[in-house]
């Protein structure tokens, strides 16, 4: 029996309509409230003003999006590489898993607020501390997804392969690894959203450029409209990455779609 796995959310544009409508109406209400109440834009800028700021500062925003993207990708690649290598080691050596897993769990209990300044202190204002922080945040979910995924392998398929004379490595390559793919993608979609937030936070604590720096500077000069403009960009960034992983999943896990349609 296949164990249940979170499936792909939302199929097609039609399913997205209610979400789009509710978000749009929230913005409309916000806009109306700001206009009617006459609240100062230093307190709460209207969505239209935020949009204006995005257009006005597009060069600045773009220049600072690039370093954030770099940190996100570099950190995520590092975490993926380490998580995958380690997951293979742990799968072949259950004893090592029991020894190391508690350490990984503890790594997840460290508050980012406290760790980020220390990492910046140790590694400076370059890319390194951001990469490390993104990796720290995304590594564990990816590792757990892979390890759980391997464990979800149908024991009958493993027995079958063993009866064929397959080695442990054969079984890993042909059965356990493919079985973990749905879990891997579930983990990937969660981690990619953490990754952007972690990158921005790392920049916020100390960096030369990046969306985190834009937010920090805008906050310090009492520009909530510019803060929100940067927030919108970072959200868009996350959404684009999320969509990219969803598309990749669609291609790699085509067989799951077939199963679902049955």
């Amino acid at each position: 029996m296949q164990r249940p796995v979170p499936r792909q959310a939302g199929r097609g544009l039609v399913h997205g309509i209610p979400a789009v409508l509710s978000v749009a109406s929230a913005f409309v209400i916000w806009e109306i409230y700001v206009r009617l109440s006459g609240i100062s834009p230093l307190m709460l800028p209207a969505p239209s003003r935020v949009l204006d700021q995005i257009m006005l500062n597009r060069a600045l925003l773009w220049d600072n999006t690039v370093p954030t993207l770099k940190a996100t990708f570099a950190g995520f690649s590092l975490s993926l590489t380490v998580a995958f290598s380690l997951s293979v080691v742990l799968d072949f050596m259950p004893r090592v898993r029991r020894a190391l897993f508690p350490i990984f769990v503890v790594s997840q209990t460290l508050p980012l607020v406290a760790i980020a300044p220390l990492v910046v202190l140790w590694f400076g204002f370059d890319l390194t501390p951001k990469v490390l922080l993104v990796a720290l945040v995304t590594f564990f979910p990816m590792l757990v997804a892979l390890v759980d995924g391997y464990a979800s392998t149908d024991p009958e398929i493993e027995d079958l392969m063993r009866s064929m004379g397959a080695s442990r490595t054969d079984i890993f390559r042909s059965a356990r690894f493919p079985s973990a793919m749905p879990y891997f993608f579930a983990g990937l979609r969660i981690s990619i959203t953490y990754a952007v937030v972690a990158a921005i936070f790392a920049e916020y604590v100390g960096a030369r450029a990046g969306l985190g720096i834009v937010i920090l500077n805008a906050k310090n000069s009492f520009r909530p409209d510019l803060v929100l403009a940067a927030v919108v960009i970072s959200s868009l960034l996350t959404l684009v990455l999320f969509a990219a992983t969803a598309m990749l999943q669609r291609i790699v896990l085509r067989w799951r779609d077939l199963e679902e349609r049955r």
């Binding site: 296949q2 009866s163 059965a175």
Partner: peptide, 18 residues
């Protein structure tokens, strides 16, 4: 020997991704 048998399990155990 291990190589004398071909085994067909109760459920088909086909790999759904292949």
């Amino acid at each position: 020997g291990q190589n004398s048998f071909a085994f067909m399990p109760q459920r088909d155990a086909l790999m759904p991704w292949r």
